[in-house]
Design a protein around this nucleic acid. Structure first.
Lengths: 239, 239
DNA sequence: AGTCTAGTAAATGTCTGACATTTCCACAAG
DNA sequence: CTTGTGGAAATGTCAGACATTTACTAGACT
């Protein structure tokens, strides 16, 4: 893999880091591959070596790269990536072409975790949490009509899941929810809803909302599972 | 707060970062305080400005500091720390004085998450995973006799939990397990086992191991719950 | 007096070139 | 076959100058 296929960039080291990180997240390099040298990167993007080094420092901190003096820069395998690093989260926002293996991993995580989180939410949710969930759900409903509002619908969908994590009233889960936002968004964008499946998705979300409102733990768990089953179908993971 | 009370350091920017980070985690600075200037830090520790900048870059990435040109470096409030950042994890190793509120939050998270993880492990564990669990458990058993081996026992205990997360064969859970290592260690150190409770803890760990080995999902879940109940008792959260 | 506007100091951010260190490889000596 | 020695190539480090941002101060004008 060379740099040639990457789009040009504009601005500081952060932009460059984002660019390279997204290429890595999309699986453009294989683990173990040697990454381009600092000077080549600088030459290609017309930035100073400093900028390149700053960018590569970020990627290294996120576990994407491994750098050793004299040896060069290598791409680390996916198991070494710091998936919960906020940097990762940032880089994943807006990225649609995630590595399929990564998509499955994140989906599997959510499928195991989100029912538990919904259950906790049913136990711990307070008035403001319910409000957040309701307003997110209302947004999903209102933007369900037209196809043009797809982006808006996705926003509300993400907000709904984030609100669920927040409602668990646990610092760690809360942080997880924040970090998962871009991943969830990517999953949603991958699963192109048709209008009929969208109605079904809405209905399942509503059951989660109702279960939490009724403080029904086990219903919340199973309802969350149903939402994710719908997602799995839309993703083509299962049918 | 000045730099004078900090111990001297030896080695590169990573050591310096660790030193400063632990001082911050210990609450030596209040949120909003101005952090010492680059040149002062460099002068105090006799390192180049480069090293200082590299260290401060790490602390900034972890959400501990906020730096703006012309303004200087400020200490961010605790709500802004990136709790799940691997750097944090590293810096927290060996720190015993965690905020009680944080201890409870982490325990609550583990109590909700770890049964699910154990269940996944029962479904996905392969030979090498079982081996890791067995060897960690064997270590716990062998170091259970003397009081002097407490540190060693804690190591094996942490290894056991880490092996459980790994056995789930999910990238996100695996990362989560890695990040929780220092927190788990802190919890273990807080819960001073007496010899009788230690036998009980061992027995419960053994049931998790057996359940995973037998691929019994629901047994693994309940066994993991029992392990954490034991932990809760030892922590004094419940009796 | 109040307010706007240079102007200055101080801090972090950036660039550049040179040098240090590590790693790998080739090639020759023993 | 082993060992060592040298060079090439990559990242790591340093030092200095300069750029940029921010906060503060001192006047000038209304």
């Amino acid at each position: 893999m060379t740099l040639d296929t990457l789009p040009s960039h504009q601005g500081g080291a952060e932009q460059l880091a984002r660019l390279l990180a997204q290429a890595l997240l999309a699986g453009h390099w294989q683990p173990g591959d040697v990454f381009p040298r600092e000077l080549d990167i600088g030459k290609h993007f017309a930035v100073s070596r400093n900028q390149v080094r700053n960018a590569l420092t970020s990627l290294t901190a996120a576990g994407l790269l491994e750098r050793t003096a004299g040896r060069g820069t290598r791409v680390r395998e996916m198991g070494d990536w710091h998936l919960l690093d906020p940097l990762m989260s940032e880089w994943m926002t807006g990225l649609v072409n995630l590595d399929p293996q990564l998509v499955r991993a994140i989906y599997a995580f959510r499928f195991s975790a989100e029912p538990v989180v919904a259950g906790l939410a049913a136990q711990a949710a307070q008035a403001e949490d319910i409000e957040r969930l309701e307003s997110a759900f209302a947004g999903m409903e209102s933007s369900a009509g037209s196809v043009k509002a797809r982006a808006e619908h996705a926003e509300y969908d993400v907000a709904f899941h984030d609100a669920t994590y927040r409602a668990s009233h646990n610092l760690v889960w809360r942080q997880m929810g924040y970090l998962l936002r871009p991943s969830i968004m990517a999953l949603i964008h991958r699963s192109q809803h048709r209008t009929d499946t969208l109605d079904d998705s809405l209905a399942r979300h509503r059951q989660v909302l109702d279960a939490i409102r009724n403080r029904d733990t086990s219903s919340a768990e199973s309802a969350a599972r149903e939402v994710l089953r719908r997602t799995a179908i839309d993703l083509g993971i299962v049918n």
